[in-house]
């Protein structure tokens, strides 16, 4: 493993709206940190040796870094679009590699078996061909034209539809999903998975959404996404090994896994290996 390549990245460490003066003890890549609100009402993140860490407030969350971020936090233009509702789904801890949590989010083939009758259902199990690329200009992994039949694609969906997805890996532990928006066919719903790596085998996951949906209550929107993520959690905690294997001999992908293949290749290329297993054991 290597902390170094990933240390200059931004990571989510709390919900902006839930900051308090007392502070919250948590961890980032093995280092104990405290996330608090200072006397001026600003977010303050303190590292293990008492040093102040850089802070950003964006997408409903507090972001920090143990190193010196060379780039700004990745953009999500939809976060500034009028008419969208922004949903802080709340933290869920998972005993798995932060990279495994991201990879699972990029996968549609598990929908019929893990999110049965919501995001998928037998016999509609086929994953049709889609496009995957590493976009060199922004240095992100993108999967487009991902189509899947879904019995209840969103809280706002009534009945089954074929949903189209775009997936984007914007940072080693942050991924953004663009999904057919039932009330507004010309727009995409935005659903993100922001993952805070506590250790290589333990992570706090902060899902966040920017949706067009004026009908559904905020609580229903939160509960829909919590339902989906908690269905994934029992899978993520039972994969062996807990680390994400980058050794190609360790796991067998198929055509449906092209996004995962690109993600693993991108991680390897950048030496983003905190939470990865390089050589099969």
């Amino acid at each position: 493993m290597s902390v170094q390549a990933m240390i200059d990245e931004w990571y989510p460490v709390g919900i902006a709206a839930q900051l308090d003066a007392a502070g919250r003890n948590t961890m980032l890549m093995g280092e104990p940190i405290v996330v608090a609100k200072d006397a001026n009402g600003q977010a303050k993140v303190t590292g293990g040796n008492g040093r102040l860490l850089p802070v950003k407030m964006r997408y409903g969350h507090v972001w920090t870094s143990l190193g010196e971020p060379k780039k700004d936090l990745f953009p999500i233009p939809e976060a500034d679009q009028p008419g969208r509702r922004f949903v802080d789904v709340g933290v869920v801890r998972v005993r798995c590699s932060p990279l495994r949590a991201v990879e699972n989010f990029l996968d549609v083939a598990h929908f019929p078996f893990v999110h049965t009758d919501i995001l998928g259902a037998e016999p509609h199990t086929e994953v049709q061909n889609y496009k995957v690329e590493i976009r060199e200009d922004v240095d992100e992994v993108w999967a487009t034209q991902v189509k899947f039949y879904q019995p209840q694609a969103a809280k706002s969906a009534s009945g089954g539809i074929t949903t189209e997805y775009m997936y984007r890996v914007a940072a080693p532990t942050c991924t953004v999903l663009y999904k057919t928006c039932p009330p507004r066919p010309s727009e995409w719903d935005v659903i993100t998975l922001f993952v805070q790596p506590l250790t290589e085998e333990l992570c706090d996951v902060w899902p966040w959404m920017a949706l067009f949906d004026d009908e559904t209550s905020m609580t229903d929107l939160i509960h829909f996404q919590q339902t989906i993520f908690l269905q994934d959690r029992s899978i993520l905690e039972n994969q062996i090994p807990r680390l994400l294997p980058l050794d190609p001999g360790m796991e067998i992908p198929t055509r449906a896994d092209l996004t995962s293949i690109a993600y693993r290749r991108w991680l390897k290329r950048h030496n983003y290996t905190y939470g990865a297993q390089l050589v099969a054991q």
């Binding site: 899978i235 039972n238 994969q239 062996i240 294997p245 796991e251 067998i252």
Partner: peptide, 10 residues
């Protein structure tokens, strides 16, 4: 073996 060769799931 208690491990699916695809993604390591039990």
């Amino acid at each position: 073996a208690d491990r699916c060769p695809h993604r390591g799931m039990s």
